[in-house]
Nucleic acid binder design. Structure first.
Length: 922
RNA sequence: GGGCGAAUAGCUCAGCUGGUUAGAGCACCUGCCUUACACGCAGGGUGUCGGGGGUUCGAAUCCCUCUUCGCCCACCA
């Protein structure tokens, strides 16, 4: 993809462009071979191990085992990798624990689709064969995503790769359920749940997602049984469910219907009679104020039904067709509707009602319908027998954890969402009528005792009777992933070294979409089973979107294949792009139609780094370099001191942007709750140092010194290698490959050392002051500005005069640099008389450029006029402020003082400009 | 319906507890092949801080209101 390097700059040893494809493979292998990403519990300072390192643990949000890497994974995992690489370098015992989720419903769907291609269903195979088939499928193709994560540089501890359906984690799942059972936190009951007629399973509330839809509101007249001339008109969006109606409810205070309460209505289409009941749940003002009650097919009606002791007939089958759930209810199904799909039945029922003359009117009606989050099928509220977890007791500590700062959510706004959800939490349906997953360990004996068992029982724990059967259902896949923070570390074995060393973990990096599905449940289960929070920080990042702000998705065809990006631009470029754009919780916009636009900057930066290294290595050579600590401070040149100071500043900025790594005590103090994890700020600080300071200024400043052998050359070499080394370290978490490739080539490297495990930079113990170099930068900037302003031909040398004094002293030493970078000769002394342009540097040093033959006089006059006028206007405002007694009386003294100083400066400057304009022929 | 949040440059966003002349990156414009890098170098800010009102010596920042947008939750059929 790269253009060929220019011939005169090409060296076969060291090409001008970074060959990322070759380097990534080799470096990845070297890291693996060295085992540097493997975490060791014994090196941690957690109880009993005697190590001296803080553990730093990140648990991967396990991708679905059948997933292939998309750019959202790329973003999520890059963030995790940046954090874990940072902490590894900072001296923590860093563990990034990878793994996959068996993803019950999702994986089962994938395999069912494969079977469908063969014209078969899972029922053709039977449970055992289907599970075996799925296991084979997962074994053959599953987990590919983990390999793909390596390609983007993920420094995970692959030796600890976990899988939710592995024997170890399955044991944890079973233990967790049994413990909940023992604490009476699970129960089985008949409830109206969300049923997916395509997946043929129940879903939790979270799995049935709301979608706005434009439906119809049917008004249907139910006549009184003993007086068909009277009746009640009800309104419904789902006329087909009227087959299961058991009552019509009105509000107890509704005068319109007061006389009818207690009377019997004749249910149209069905012909049976149902009562009119009064229940405060009914809204008087909605529709007709009368509500048909269908307890088996509406969660609210179910509650009404329970209150009034009503029957609960089921008229929709698991596959979403009309059919009686119980033989007694066959009388409710008209022959014309029997067996029809529910949507067909809706139309048909409406037609039949119209024919019967009871369809009063049909209006359009906007409402939300729930759809299956896996297959988008409209879910059917349906009465069925399911397992539930009582959530209120579990939610309590999870709520407190966030409220008291034990766990912080970033960005902060999600804390409110989290609290809002937990405060209104409802019981969790955890049983799924699927085959792929952990089978619920509840067994029934010959005497009908249902008991949960840790191990498959041979006899009933209650009565020793033989076991007859195990529950057919499996757990919601989120039940097992909800245990991830400890099931991956050896729990329920409390003595597990990993559990002791790495639980609780540190930062959880994920998307807000699974805040309830996963994050909240992990916090709840960790409190329930381990008595504490699973992590102290939840970092909720944004979504990858296209230029129209649409979420990237397969169906929209606006996705980006991260591996394609890696191939064309390199993994570092991919990582750079997502991190550099990673404002806290901010969506990342990428253009799928123009990958160059999004990823070239990252590649360009990698190339820039490469070329800094190329220059440095070609100039510095292989000879030993003095360690910075051994360089005589007094031998440092001004530019050396400056760049060392800038490095310290960059380190401080990066640290401030990233940290604190953990709360010092168990809880986040209020003032630290929002700090850190500003990855974009960190990336920018590191980039600015290496590119805009080191490369743009220091490298230029040091060029001539490197060409003259002697002591000063050694100082320059030492500083140059040091600051570049440190810069590479700062950037390594973001761009691991190019930084490793360069770092390995720096002089004095010992084999087996990696920047990946090199100590994270720290500010110098004894900082040096190089701020005087800023005057040199100011002068060069000013002269460059004048050259551009007056359109002085690039090659034409110019000359500037200035007085020699304490402030301008640094310029005397840097005259050569000014000459090189601004093509301007500095002369200390009075300028020749005649027209001249003046540049006053922020430091106060004044440069005088004779205009004769160099600069356009008219332009200079115009420029000064405009500056004078602008400044005069602001000066007016400033004087007004100072004249205001309230300002001088109430504003802080420092502010007033600063304004006074400014007034003096501006006044002088205006006078000066004025005089100059006069002199030059104003 | 309930809750939360956001409107600042062409785009994506910083601007914290009110205090210099409102910033960054990208994009864009101009000029440069200056021997590490044209995947580069140098220069350039293109803005009624969504509208209106208020508090204040002083408001992008605090308060009210309107408008627009977004997110989460939800049992009005």
């Amino acid at each position: 993809m790269s253009e060929p390097a220019r011939p005169d700059a090409t060296s076969p040893e060291f090409p001008t462009h970074f060959d990322f494809a070759a380097a990534e493979a080799a470096i990845g292998k070297a890291w693996d071979d060295a085992g540097i990403f493997r975490a060791d519990p014994t090196r941690t300072n957690r109880a009993g191990f005697g190590g001296d390192r803080d553990p730093f643990t990140i648990l991967i949000p396990p991708p679905n085992v059948t997933a292939i890497l998309h750019v959202g994974h790329g973003l999520n995992n890059t963030v995790q990798d940046v954090l874990v690489r940072w902490r590894r370098m900072a001296g923590d015992e860093a563990l990034w624990l990878p793994g996959t989720d068996h993803a019950g419903i999702a994986t089962q769907n994938v395999v069912e689709k494969l079977l469908a291609k063969e014209g078969r269903t899972r029922f053709d195979l039977g449970r055992e064969a289907f599970v075996a088939r799925t296991e084979t499928f997962v074994a053959e193709t599953g987990g590919a995503i983990l390999g793909q994560l390596r390609a983007i540089g993920a420094s995970a501890d692959w030796s600890r790769t976990a899988y939710t359906l592995s024997p170890a984690l399955s044991r944890a799942v079973r233990e967790a359920f049994v413990r909940l059972w023992e604490k009476d936190l699970v129960y089985r009951g008949n409830r109206v749940i969300h049923w997916c007629p395509r997946c043929l399973t129940s879903l939790s509330d979270e799995e049935a997602e709301f979608h706005d839809s434009e439906g119809k509101l049917y008004h249907i007249r139910y006549p009184l049984a003993d007086d068909p001339s009277q009746g009640i008109t009800i309104a419904t969006t789902r006329p087909e469910t009227m087959l299961a109606d058991v009552a019509v409810a009105v509000h107890p205070d509704d005068a319109r219907y007061a006389k009818l309460v207690g009377k019997q209505l004749k249910l149209p289409l069905v012909g049976i009679t149902i009562p009119v009941i009064a229940d405060a749940y009914v809204e008087k003002d909605f529709g007709t104020g009368a509500l048909k009650i269908t307890p088996a097919h509406d969660a609210n009606d179910f509650e009404v039904g329970k209150r009034h002791g009503l029957a609960m007939p089921v008229v929709i089958t698991p596959t979403g067709t009309i059919g009686a759930g119980h033989p007694d209810d066959r009388r409710r199904i008209p022959a014309e509707l029997d067996g029809l799909d529910r949507f067909e039945a809706r139309k048909k029922a409406a037609a039949m009602l119209e024919a019967a003359g009871v369809l009063v009117k049909v209006e359009s009606h906007a409402n939300s319908i729930r759809r299956c989050y896996r297959c988008d099928t409209v879910v059917e509220p349906r009465l069925s027998l399911q397992w539930f977890v009582r959530m209120a007791p579990l939610a309590k500590p999870a709520l407190a954890a966030v409220q008291d700062g034990t766990v912080r959510l970033l960005p902060e706004k999600w804390e409110k969402v989290y609290i809002n959800w937990l405060e209104g939490i409802r019981d969790w349906n955890i049983s799924r009528q699927l085959w792929w997953g952990h089978r619920i360990p509840v067994f029934t004996c010959a005497n009908g005792h249902e008991v949960a068992y840790r191990d498959d029982p041979t006899a009933c724990a209650k009565c020793q009777a033989p076991i007859l059967s195990q529950d057919e259902d499996v757990f919601d896949t989120w039940f097992s992933s909800g245990l991830w923070p400890f099931s991956t570390l050896g729990w329920p074995d409390e003595e597990s070294a990993d559990l002791k060393a790495f639980f609780p973990s540190d930062v959880l990096v994920t998307a807000p979409e699974i805040l309830f599905f996963w994050v909240a449940r992990m916090i709840m289960t960790s409190y329930a089973f381990l008595g504490g929070a699973p992590f102290h920080t939840v970092y909720l990042h944004g979504t990858v979107r296209d230029m129209q702000h649409r979420k990237m998705s397969k169906s929209l065809g606006n996705g980006i294949d991260p591996l394609d990006v890696v191939e064309r631009f390199g993994a570092d470029a991919l990582r750079w792009t997502v991190i550099q754009g990673m404002g806290l919780g901010v969506d990342v916009m990428l253009d799928p139609d123009d990958l160059d636009k999004s990823f070239a900057p990252g590649r360009n930066f990698a190339t820039k780094l490469w070329n800094i290294g190329r220059f440095l290595l070609l100039q510095v050579g292989d000879d030993a370099v003095t360690p910075i600590a051994e360089v005589d401070r007094t031998a440092l040149a001004l530019a050396d001191r400056w760049v060392l100071g800038r490095l310290d500043a960059a380190v401080a900025e990066c640290d401030a942007a990233l940290g604190p790594a953990r709360p010092r005590t168990g809880k986040w103090p209020e003032q630290e709750r929002q700090l850190g994890l500003r990855l974009d700020a960190y990336a920018e600080a590191a980039r600015r140092f290496v590119w805009n300071e080191l490369a743009d200024w220091y490298v230029e400043a040091v060029k001539t010194r490197l060409q003259q052998p002697g002591a000063d050359r050694e100082v320059a070499r030492a500083v140059l290698v040091h600051v570049f080394d440190q810069g590479l370290r700062l950037l390594h978490p973001i761009m691991p490959f190019v930084t490793e490739a360069l770092w390995q080539r720096l002089p004095g490297r010992t084999p087996g050392a990696f920047v990946a495990t090199a100590p994270w930079p720290r500010p110098a113990a004894a900082p040096v002051d190089g701020s005087a170099f800023e005057i040199v930068r100011e002068a060069i900037d000013a002269i460059r500005g004048l050259r551009a302003e007056y359109a002085v031909t690039p090659g034409q040398p110019i000359r500037a005069f200035l007085t020699r004094d304490a402030r301008s002293a640094p310029l005397a030493d840097a005259a050569g640099l000014v000459q090189r970078l601004a093509r301007c000769e500095l002369t200390f002394g009075a300028a020749p008389t005649g027209a001249a342009a003046h540049a006053v540097l922020p430091s106060g040093v004044e440069l005088v450029l004779p205009l004769e033959g160099m600069v356009d006089v008219k332009k200079e006059v115009a420029r000064m006029r405009s500056e004078r006028d602008g400044l005069a206007k602001q000066l007016d405002a400033l004087r007004g402020r100072l004249a205001n007694e309230k300002f001088t009386a109430k504003a802080p003294a420092a502010v007033v003082e600063a304004e006074r100083v400014k007034e003096g400066e501006w006044t002088a400057r205006v006078a000066q400009l004025d005089a100059k304009v006069q002199e030059l022929g104003g």
